[in-house]
Design a protein around this nucleic acid. Structure first.
Lengths: 245, 245
DNA sequence: AATTGAATAGTTGTCCTACAACTTTATAGG
DNA sequence: CCTATAAAGTTGTAGGACAACTATTCAATT
């Protein structure tokens, strides 16, 4: 078993940990866009892992659009590196995304209670109508400014009631993680919405134009965990997608 | 050099060819959603490739959301397999997407001419302001109904003038392909737009609400090829994204 | 009978070595 | 200066081995 100088902290498989380290290095600018990163052999020696592990990690970053690997030449930092952080295809907590973009995330609950699922929620979560769900209405803030309103419903079956308190204190993702629930995938639909019925409070934006992200989160096994309708105030959040063929 | 019974036709690396074959098998229902596919060793023997190649192909399909690989257990077909095809993250011609969704695609040009690049186009295409570009304004139809208005600019340097005629007859992608130009990636920004300034003609939709896909297409080497602002009429086109962690 | 626990076989994760295929750089010759 | 060739460097694939994890089987215990 090889020992490594930089212990590759974190969780997950060795490849995943290495991938995260390399992603951080790329995003932090260790290599400039268009520049060639170290060769697989070099990285293999540097982190004391096999070349197979390095290759798998690089391939993963390539499929995320951060790298462009060319046979016989090397792996080059893609020219989109800096903007991709807010990429839609990567499933991340909104709170964490806001923080990584350099803002101070915040959250204001309008409601947070256990209710019976309405027909839309029941259909998305694959449960009976009226079955208990944890419903919440939140305003999401960045540096004190409202960037989105979110209407969420968590399938509550099997979750201890203490999760309610945990959610009230911070990120939904972080709260669920404490109870062993990890969203692994989300299936999202995007719409443009123009309505004055959305949002509340005094800091409500003047416009009525929103980008709606209507998504269902699933766990590893494909079981629906949460239905979420998030209305992003147009102009205050930049959504980007890297499309590949 | 191993010989394989099924020759894995197509182009690209061995891994890419195997990946395409396996993706086709998955989408065609060789294994049902949730079902475990053959083990890496089995696939390795079946296609006469090394386990490394099989692993790389499977990992690629996992990052596309088609598979879920579990340590010590196997690779399972994800439950979204059938819906993903229309996903935003896959770069495809709008025309072809419309046809695959079962509609008859159409296109109406308002203009198609060589002009000097404006500042926005110049910035996105990384050329001088005023440099020649092929600009077009089009309405995109599905079954005769307008689903989007698109304002595009192709960096024309090096392209023969005959490409203009080819584009006028059908898909832009198809026309460019004839001249050896293949968009490999696109970087898209999404916005909600409410404006009456968009669109033209008698079949113009009554509403003024659009989903704007503002994207730049790049070739394999990262050179910008085309800037494209496409305004999709809200409600007439469904955009979905699979988000993974 | 039901539950627990250990052994077992099967599968993915990582390692090592080797070589093929491709790209870039260096070199020699004109 | 230009071209062709050689050399070095890099990614792609192969094969074998073992570790780590999962699912199953079956005997022992309650």
């Amino acid at each position: 078993m090889p020992k490594r100088s930089t212990p590759l902290g974190g969780q997950g498989t060795l490849t995943q940990r290495l991938r995260d380290v390399l992603r951080t290095r790329i995003l932090s600018g260790d290599w400039r866009p268009g520049e060639r990163i170290s060769s697989e052999t070099d990285l293999s020696e540097q982190y004391r892992v096999s070349r197979v592990t390095v290759r798998t990690a690089l391939k993963s970053l390539e499929s995320q659009g951060l790298l462009d690997i060319r046979h016989g030449s090397g792996a080059y930092v893609s020219n989109f590196g800096s903007s991709i952080r807010a990429g839609l295809q990567e499933l991340r907590s909104i709170t964490e995304t806001i923080r990584e973009l350099g803002f101070e995330p915040g959250m204001k609950f309008k409601s947070l209670q256990q209710v019976g699922a309405n027909s839309e929620q029941a259909a998305h979560l694959n449960i009976e109508e009226g079955a208990p769900v944890l419903a919440m209405e939140r305003a999401i803030l960045a540096d004190g400014e409202i960037v989105a309103y979110s209407y969420d419903a968590v399938a509550i079956a099997g979750l201890p009631s203490s999760v309610v308190q945990a959610i009230g204190k911070g990120s939904v993702f972080a709260a669920l993680a404490k109870f062993g629930v990890y969203p692994a995938r989300a299936f999202a639909e995007i719409h443009a919405i123009n309505s004055t019925e959305i949002g509340w409070g005094s800091k409500r934006p003047s416009g009525a134009l929103y980008l709606l992200l209507d998504q269902v989160h699933f766990d590893r096994d494909g079981n629906p965990l949460m239905h979420s309708k998030t209305y992003f105030v147009e102009g205050r959040f930049q959504f980007v997608i890297l499309r590949t063929s």
